[in-house]
């Protein structure tokens, strides 16, 4: 009697499930820039796959984006990972502060324009998110 492949198959599935489940708990399921900070949006949320982006851009330093603030200026030495952008950059900012949309646009476009890589036009970011 041959051994049934059922058990190894189940094991394989279990491993696969674990592997799939772990990224699901990290930012790997992020497909767009978070828009919770906006009361209403004009366009589709900007497409942004966090981990894939960082891998492609070879970004290891979180504070490159998740920066802090010192004396009303951007402070790249502080790492603010985990704090939602909109906690500091509210959609309607007080004078001297950078509102959320401007912060996003400067963050993404500014870097892409500097590096001359990645999307810079409206339509290249604000497109329908790829289906999960």
């Amino acid at each position: 009697m041959k051994r049934t492949p059922l058990i190894p198959l189940a094991l394989l599935l279990l491993v696969a499930a674990v592997f799939l489940a772990v990224p699901a708990m990290s930012q790997q399921d992020m497909t767009t820039v978070p828009t919770e900070g906006f009361k209403q949006t004009t366009r589709l949320p900007a497409v942004f796959a966090h981990d894939a982006h960082n891998e492609k851009a070879a970004l290891a330093d979180c504070s490159a984006c998740h920066h802090g603030e010192k004396d009303g200026k951007r402070d790249n030495s502080a790492d603010t990972s985990g704090i939602p952008c909109s906690d500091c950059h509210s959609a309607q900012a007080k004078p001297g502060k950078t509102p959320l949309m401007r912060a996003f646009h400067r963050q993404c476009m500014g870097c892409h324009m500097d590096k001359q890589k990645g999307p810079v036009t409206c339509g290249d970011c604000h497109e329908p998110a790829p289906k999960k």
Binding site: P119, V120, T121, C122, G123, D124, E127
Partner: peptide
């Protein structure tokens, strides 16, 4: 460009 017809950066 708005309708993302053609290469968007080019358009």
């Amino acid at each position: 460009a708005y309708h993302r017809i053609g290469d968007n950066l080019f358009m």
